[in-house]
Amino acid sequence: VPQRAWTVEQLRSEQLPKKDIIKFLQEHGSDSFLAEHKLLGNIKNVAKTANKDHLVTAYNHLFETKRFK
């Protein structure tokens, strides 16, 4: 089981690129989880459509539901 890579403050910070969060989610989330949160596909394309709040919610949801690969 992966550990949380970032704190809530870090997740919301401008310093953390959306692409980093997407990469983490794609590496650790199950396909059904990723599909549900519309996070499947090319990281660049996902970054265009997903806002930061959406990614933070998905990140927290992944750990709450433990839907890891």
Rank of each mutant, 00 (worst) to 15 (best):
L16K: 04
F63C: 02
L34M: 04
V46S: 04
K18V: 11
I22R: 00
N60A: 08
P17R: 11
N42E: 15
E9C: 06
L62D: 01
V8H: 09
R4K: 09
E14R: 14
N42L: 11
N51E: 12
V1E: 15
I21F: 02
N45P: 03
K48T: 13
L55Y: 02
Y59S: 01
V8Y: 08
N42P: 15
K19R: 12
T57Q: 12
E9H: 04
E9D: 09
L25M: 07
N60Y: 06
S13Y: 04
N51P: 10
Q10T: 05
V56D: 02
L62H: 01
N60T: 11
H37F: 15
E14H: 12
I43G: 07
R67C: 11
P17N: 09
K38S: 12
K52C: 08
I21P: 00
P2L: 05
T57N: 13
V56I: 15
L34E: 00
P17D: 15
A58M: 07
T49Y: 14
P2T: 04
K38A: 13
L25W: 00
Y59V: 03
Y59P: 00
D31S: 12
F68Y: 07
D53K: 06
K48E: 15
V56Q: 04
Q10S: 04
K38N: 11
I21M: 04
V46L: 13
L25C: 01
G29F: 02
N60Q: 12
V56K: 02
L55C: 05
V8T: 14
E36D: 11
K69W: 06
E64G: 04
G29S: 09
Q3E: 15
D20K: 14
L39F: 03
I43V: 12
A35C: 13
F33H: 02
F24Y: 11
V1T: 12
L40T: 11
K52M: 05
I22D: 00
A5G: 11
H28M: 07
S30C: 08
L55N: 00
F33R: 00
L11M: 09
K48S: 12
Q3P: 08
F33A: 00
N51I: 08
V8G: 07
Q26W: 09
Q10I: 04
L34D: 00
E14V: 11
I43T: 08
V8S: 14
I22L: 09
N45Q: 14
Y59H: 01
D53N: 10
K23Q: 11
Y59N: 01
L11I: 06
G29M: 01
K38R: 10
T65R: 06
V8P: 13
A35M: 13
E64S: 10
A5K: 15
S32D: 12
R12P: 03
Y59M: 03
I22A: 03
Q15Y: 13
V46Y: 04
K48I: 12
K52V: 06
N51M: 08
L25R: 00
T49R: 14
V1S: 09
T57R: 10
S13I: 03
E14I: 09
H28W: 15
S32K: 08
E14A: 15
L11T: 02
I21L: 05
A58W: 03
T7R: 02
L11S: 02
S30Y: 02
A58H: 02
F24C: 04
D53S: 09
Q3G: 06
K18I: 10
K48D: 13
S32Q: 10
D20C: 12
Y59D: 00
R12N: 11
A47H: 08
T49V: 10
T65E: 11
S32W: 07
L34H: 01
I22P: 00
L55I: 08
V46H: 05
F24R: 01
L25P: 00
A50G: 05
K44P: 10
H37L: 07
V8E: 15
G41E: 04
E64L: 08
N45C: 15
T49G: 10
K66S: 11
K38Q: 14
A58N: 01
L11Q: 02
K44C: 15
A5D: 15
E14F: 07
T65Q: 11
S13N: 07
G29N: 01
L55A: 03
T7C: 08
L25G: 00
T49I: 14
R67Y: 06
L62Q: 00
Q3A: 10
G41V: 03
E36L: 09
V56F: 04
K48M: 15
Q15D: 11
T7P: 06
L39I: 07
G41I: 02
E27P: 00
F33N: 00
F68D: 02
E36Q: 12
K23L: 09
E14Q: 09
K38D: 10
H61Q: 13
F24P: 00
A35W: 12
K69D: 05
G41L: 03
N60M: 12
R12S: 08
H37G: 02
V8I: 10
F33D: 00
F33M: 01
E36P: 01
L55W: 03
A35H: 13
W6Q: 03
H28P: 01
T57H: 14
L40G: 08
F24M: 03
A50R: 07
N45T: 14
A35V: 09
K48R: 13
H54W: 11
D31G: 11
R4C: 10
W6E: 04
K48G: 09
I43P: 12
R12K: 12
A35P: 01
K66C: 11
F63W: 07
K23W: 07
T49Q: 13
K69V: 06
L62R: 00
A35F: 14
N42M: 11
I22M: 04
L39D: 01
I21H: 01
S30A: 10
R4H: 08
Q3V: 10
N51A: 10
V1L: 14
L11F: 02
K52G: 03
K44Y: 15
T7Q: 05
H28Q: 07
L40F: 11
E64C: 08
I22V: 12
H54T: 11
L62Y: 02
K44I: 12
E14P: 15
R4E: 08
Q3K: 13
Q26C: 05
L40P: 01
E9Q: 06
N45H: 15
F63P: 00
Q26R: 13
N45F: 15
N45V: 14
G29W: 01
I43S: 07
S30F: 02
D20A: 10
L11A: 02
L39T: 01
K66T: 06
S13R: 03
K23I: 13
R12H: 14
A5M: 14
E36Y: 10
K19V: 13
V8C: 12
N51F: 08
S30E: 11
H54G: 11
G41A: 05
D31Q: 12
H28F: 11
G29V: 01
D31F: 13
L16H: 05
K38L: 09
E14G: 14
H37M: 13
A35K: 12
H37V: 06
A47D: 09
K38C: 14
L16Q: 02
D31I: 14
L55V: 10
N60I: 14
V1P: 13
G29I: 01
F24G: 00
H37I: 03
V1M: 12
F24T: 02
L16S: 03
E64R: 07
R4S: 09
V1W: 15
A5H: 15
P2C: 10
V8D: 15
L55P: 00
K23M: 10
V56R: 03
F33K: 00
D53V: 06
L40C: 12
N45K: 13
H37S: 04
H37W: 11
E14W: 07
L25H: 00
